[in-house]
Amino acid sequence: MTQLAGYRPPYPGTQPNHLHPPYVSSRKRAPTKPLVPIPFTLTEITGPSFGTEILPPKACDLTRLRGGEAIGERIVVSGRVLDENSRPVPNTLIEIWQANAAGRYHHEVDKHDAPLDPNFAGSGKTITDSEGRYRFLTIRPGEYPWGNHYNAWRPAHIHFSIFGPAFATRLVTQMFFPGDPLLAFDPIFNCTADEKARNRLISVFDWETTSPDYSLGYRFDLILRGREATPMGDKLGE
């Protein structure tokens, strides 16, 4: 018989609610009935894993495409994936996507009147190493307008999708840049009550990963849920 522990709930105020009325798209899409709490079972404490063989070549370098160099300011975005107990999360898939330097996404829905860059697709993926580290070389994304309210502009950001060890640890988030004047006005960034939690979405300028004459470095650590100390009392039928 094996006993397995669940995952800790988030600290109060550190995660958004589904409904955040200033973010207009949440109004017709957030559930209106209370979520039904369920105990952790084997379903939620297991989850998919992926090996490096699924990664296309150079999937962590977004700056070159079709033999040409993307336009914009080259940056290295790197960090570690840890759990709440500061333990590294190794061998887990990270996907990123972002606008180009002009603030335009390579996507049919994006009608923003800014140039596309034929040498920038805006998508990267990698798998963390044995210490939970990851590293992307990309272009600093531009800010761009959106239709949420009059004269609405999104702060510069990079989308991150990460799996972690279990269905319960799945996380999608956005990384922002220090000093962005638009952060204070962005309903998506501000959807979380806890100011410190919000501010942890802002990357940190990093000399250590800044390369002379080539690129600036930004550091962004991702924290996944920690394990409960006590087993969930589940006995697996062996």
Binding site: P10, Y11, T14, Q15, P16, Y23, S25, I54, P56, L82, D83, E84, N85, S86, E95, I96, W97, A99, Y105, H106, H107, V109, D110, A121, G122, S123, G124, K125, H159, S161, L171, V172, T173, Q174, I188, F189, C191, T192, A197, R198, R200, L201, L222, I223, L224, R225, G226
Partner: peptide
């Protein structure tokens, strides 16, 4: 000291750019 789980954010409208490859 215990860390806190990173705050979730929306995938937005353009997630296809980053997520279609793994359909």
């Amino acid at each position: 000291m215990s860390l806190q789980t990173t705050t979730s954010q929306t995938v937005g409208p353009y997630f296809g750019i980053g997520m279609t490859w793994l359909i």
